[in-house]
Design a protein around this nucleic acid. Structure first.
Lengths: 343, 343
DNA sequence: TATATGTCTGGGAGCGCTACCAGAATTATT
DNA sequence: AATAATTCTGGTAGCGCTCCCAGACATATA
């Protein structure tokens, strides 16, 4: 198809290569009729400039890398990441960037991919998902001079631009909601405790207990791993501590946990109430519908890309932190409607 | 970091740029000690060749595009696609290709992205997800001379390399299994009927009925859309036709459908048996565990990439069709174990 | 009319590689 | 020892763009 070059188009439209370049890049200083003539030739021939050549000459690839570290293995177990990816892809399209996907399965993958990400002139910027404690990847990437934005608060957040939701506050609200409904033995199923998300949500849980004069009971806190199975296993453990309500750090885990309750012959929310986190479409479809924290996942991705592009196009500025809002969505699993009916 | 060029490395190791290039690309005709010397300098400096320059000079970008047409809107609704993407990403890493993700939300996106995909010298090859009938995208891509592999049988399958599972056979087996268990009123929840997957699975369903002397009843066939909500709605419609078993064209739809059964106060499999399709992790965790057709999703993606790379590296050969095997996984939702206990 | 200011256009250098070619150095063959 | 074959190395010409500069042309200002 487009084996044509700028010179071919130049010749066909009787101008110089420079002028064609100007037309293609929408630059000023081209007479109107000339511009139209060139545009017409481009249209007719179906010409598209060679991106490799453009990237080499302009030192810009118009490509953004999305890096998902191997430590975040739940990518495809948790619908969160596909949704995030979707938001990111949409934003990239909108801004005419191509999205490169760097999905790492294993730490060895990381070694293999790192050079590719770090090559100068290959990526204009990188969006990295925050991983687990001790993960060196982000720090290594930050050391390169390449523009970078982290999705989710990284452990060393000094001097790194990142975007996150206020997990502490969100969890605080979720658990406070349960406390206000009168639950006294509120359990928690956390995510893998080696990530900031998990730590922050746990922190919110603890603060809420404190704020409502409830004692912290270690037996009521179990670590999950953001998967349904993880939620299931955690809940089996939690059951013996006899919680009257449970805050799960993700909807998927809440669903797994609720399965345990059902299998034990107990009811949600009458015997054990639940609040989840994410507000995936699943949440409103579960039985009973799940009360949860709504995260604007897709917008989160879009915003992340916008920040990154700003960084790319307007240079390195002091690292910027962006915190997005969440919202408690009350459905039936927390027993709020149930309780109101009773009163 | 790597603001270095080949010439810098050449100078530092006292050889010419050509020799360094040979070393980097593992070409022969470099004296052993020279090679080692150069390698050492590369290591020490952390040099990585500029990919844009390499792509321009060699006319190879080492980049593969994964194109998901807007008609496949269920990218994040259905865990199938994330899993597929994972397999694809893994294979790309393994073969040192970078994966470009072209996720189209709307038909307008398609217009915007198409030029980017078709640009000569930008992508070495394209893997496209088969879309819906009338979707022009694949045909447009095929017209370009770029190597292309379609995931899922396209409508016009002449002269296009594609990879798929034998959906007809798989559905046939699933439904035959139900028929053998003695169910007589076997319903079907199909996918959007404008795609080959859906048509093929429906075809398999019909053939199985035929093969077991069961009448085809239009009221027992309802169109879904591969989402849980779609399955839910389809089942509500299906319920009045009083099926004793249902074949759902995806696990996710089966799950939605089973929810209807539960809400109607009926039991699975005693009142209505179910067989799904995909064998997602969800399937073994549902209540009851779902009998389903196992697809090797991740391997499917890997195989697709391998075919594409072969196409890229060894030139255009006659279009190749690859069909992968599926397997019926019997769990409890079909009532097989239940029936055996009764007998 | 002469000069300044602004608008338009083409030429040429260069981005950092690969690939080809010619010649030097080394080894094998007569 | 002379020649042929092979291994090794550097020089050079692009790949297809962008970007800068100089000059042509058009319009505004004195």
């Amino acid at each position: 198809m487009s084996d044509l070059t700028l010179d071919d188009i130049a010749e066909k439209s009787g101008v110089s290569r420079s002028t064609v370049s100007r037309v293609i890049n929408g630059q000023p200083y081209v007479r109107k009729d000339v511009r139209e003539r060139v545009l017409k030739v481009i249209q007719e021939t179906g010409f598209h400039p060679n991106l490799a050549a453009r990237a080499l000459a302009s030192q810009r690839s118009w490509m953004i890398g999305l890096v998902l570290p191997s430590s975040v293995s739940s990518f495809f177990a948790d619908p969160y990441f596909p949704r995030l990816t979707q938001g990111i892809a949409r934003a990239c399209n909108q801004h005419n960037y191509t999205l490169g996907l760097f999905l790492m399965d294993t730490p060895e993958d990381e070694e293999k991919i790192f050079p590719r990400v770090s090559r100068k002139g290959f990526l204009d910027g990188v969006l990295v998902q925050s991983g687990r404690i001790g993960d060196q990847l982000i720090e290594r990437l930050v050391k390169l001079t390449i523009p970078i934005v982290v999705a989710g608060r990284p452990f060393h957040d000094d001097d790194v631009s990142y975007i996150d939701v206020d997990n502490v506050k969100a969890a605080f609200e979720a658990v406070s909601h349960l406390a206000r409904l009168g639950y006294r033995r509120i359990g928690a199923i956390t995510g893998n405790i080696n990530s900031t998300v998990s730590l922050d949500r746990k922190e919110g849980y603890l603060r809420a207990l404190l704020g409502h004069g409830l004692a912290v009971n270690k037996a009521l806190i179990v670590e999950g791993d953001f998967t349904e199975v993880g939620g299931y296993l955690a809940m089996r453990q939690l059951l013996s501590a006899k919680p009257d309500a449970v805050f799960a750090a993700s909807d998927v885990m809440a669903l797994g946990a609720m399965r345990v309750v059902r299998e034990a012959g107990l009811r949600v929310p009458e015997d054990i109430a639940f609040v989840g986190f994410d507000d995936l479409p699943l949440a409103s479809l579960s039985d009973p519908p799940l009360t949860t924290i709504h995260q604007p996942i897709s917008e989160f991705g879009e915003k992340a890309i916008e920040i990154l592009i700003d960084l790319i196009e307007n240079g390195i500025m002091p690292a910027r932190q962006t915190i997005m809002d969440t919202k408690l969505v009350v459905r039936e699993s927390c027993g709020a409607t149930h309780k109101m009916v009773l009163e």
